[in-house]
Simulated scan of single mutants.
Amino acid sequence: MRSKDVRPARKSTSKILWSVVGAFIGIYMMSIFSSSFSTHDSFFLLGSFGASAVLIYGAPEAPFSQPRNLVGGHVLSALVSVLLVKSFGNMLDLELLCALSVSLSVLVMHLTLTMHPPGGATALIYVIGSEQIQSLGWIYPLTPIGLGAIMMLLVALIINNMSENSKRHYPLYWY
């Protein structure tokens, strides 16, 4: 349990500010877009997108932050959760469905090289979601999930490439 290294230094003020601006604009745009669909709930504002914002704006150079991982991780995890609920929702306990949705999402993301940690939350959100969320069925992976991930990606492409720092340019790779 001994550490193998020392903690990294804090990022530069410039990098921190770009991260804050990106996260603000990304989530604000999602909030505006979401409010145009419904005044009762925040259709596109899922907790997993908050976690994605931390990755794609705060650590755009990380493998988990790349476009393939962002979009693929969310969409594939959403597909896994919908498949499980549609196939076994009435036969399995909620606790088992929760565990299966996250663990099988991790498996699928590993196999497809799309590991994006917030994808686990995307899967869990559908399984434990309200009737309104579950009524989306096979639409859930497309919208709010796929469309939301693409909206965040577009903001990340703009914000992360506005920086003068070449290490911040995004993405490192597409595929």
Results as ranks from 00 to 15, higher is better:
Phe88Glu: 12
Ala123Glu: 07
Tyr175Pro: 06
Thr143Leu: 08
Ser35Ala: 13
Val108Trp: 01
Tyr173Ser: 15
Met1Arg: 08
Ser77Gly: 12
Pro144Thr: 03
Thr39Tyr: 02
Met91Val: 11
Val21Asn: 01
Ser34Pro: 04
Lys167Leu: 10
Ile133Pro: 07
Ser103Trp: 00
Lys167Gln: 13
Leu17Ile: 15
Ser101Glu: 00
Arg7Pro: 09
Ile159His: 01
Gly26Ala: 09
Gly137Lys: 09
Phe49Ala: 14
Ala121Met: 09
Val85Leu: 10
Ser103Arg: 00
Val21Gly: 03
Leu113Val: 10
His74Tyr: 05
Ser135Gly: 07
Val106Met: 06
Val106Ile: 14
Val155Ala: 02
Ser38Val: 10
Ala9Gln: 13
Arg7Gln: 09
Ile158Phe: 04
Ser77Asn: 07
Pro8Phe: 09
Val155Thr: 09
Val85His: 08
Trp18Gly: 00
Gly137Thr: 13
Leu96His: 05
Ser52Asp: 08
Glu95Ile: 10
Leu79Tyr: 10
Met91Trp: 04
Asn160Cys: 01
Met151Cys: 05
Ala51Lys: 00
Leu70Cys: 05
Pro171Ser: 04
Met109Ser: 03
Ser81Leu: 07
Asn69Ile: 03
Ala9Val: 13
Ser48Gly: 13
Asp5Cys: 12
Thr39His: 04
Ile133Trp: 06
Thr122Pro: 04
His110Pro: 05
Val82Asp: 04
Lys4Trp: 04
Leu154Thr: 11
Met152Gly: 09
Val20His: 10
Gly72Leu: 08
Met115Trp: 10
Pro63Trp: 06
Val102Gln: 06
Glu131Asp: 13
Ser42Cys: 12
Met152Leu: 15
Lys167Ser: 05
Leu76Gln: 03
Ser38Gln: 10
Asn160Glu: 08
Ser77Thr: 05
Ser19Arg: 03
Tyr170Ser: 09
His40Met: 12
Phe37Ser: 14
